[in-house]
Design a protein around this nucleic acid. Structure first.
Lengths: 109, 109
DNA sequence: ACGCGTGCCTTAGATTGTCTAGGTGAGAGC
DNA sequence: GCTCTCACCTAGACAATCTAAGGCACGCGT
């Protein structure tokens, strides 16, 4: 319960999809990318990341392929499917809508 | 799983505290108020609302008192404690921070 | 040649918060 | 007296995250 990240449940999928939308990446790379993009504000836990990836693969939003990294290590590269791209749009819209509502309520209340 | 509310877990407490910050209200009244403030975009489930209220009462963020409503019905009026007010500030800050991060990531990714 | 740091993946449980879906009781209006 | 609405309560299912541990293999330093 530190004042670390504390991501809102449901937003991780969206962030991962978002990062993958610029190109394929392996799990560890996704973590790094998110940390970098958020200026170290986000530290995605591996115990959250991988289950999330499996869920999304099962749902067909992303697909995986084993390859070698530049460091010559085996890694599972994930990339967005067409369905995943739609899902990203959907989640993004939902997020926008919800955060607008929350802003509305917190400002008028 | 309709395209109804689908509140992000963790935000309900903040919204309730926020509504209570303008004055005491009973559970049912909180539901109405949130629905009204969000222009019907939020329909808070009673099965989420009451557990949330109990949690917060136990944590000392709010306190309850049985009274009569204008309609002559008994209702439990909740009001913010000093601790609750601080908690609201804290959660508000967290929300602002998190949504800024998400905006940052989704725009740069 | 060996150990160790690091890159990278995996997974079992606990925890937390929400939703589903039922129920209770009592005033008000017909 | 019947039904509608107000108003509260709760058990159980479910979903997503975190905790915490373990595993394998490359490459570097010595």
């Amino acid at each position: 319960m530190a004042d670390k990240s504390e991501l809102f449940p449901g937003t991780l999928d969206m962030l991962i999809l978002r990062v993958l939308s610029r190109g394929e990446l392996h799990g560890w790379g996704i973590t790094n990318k998110l940390e970098q993009l958020s200026k170290s504000a986000l530290q995605v836990d591996e115990g959250s990341l991988y289950p999330s990836l499996y869920r999304m693969e099962e749902k067909g939003w992303i697909e995986a392929e084993w390859r070698m990294t530049e460091n010559n290590r085996r890694a599972k590269y994930y990339s967005l499917t067409r369905t995943g791209r739609k899902q990203l749009e959907h989640e993004q819209a939902l997020w926008d809508r919800m955060s607008a509502i929350i802003t509305l309520v917190t400002q008028s209340a």
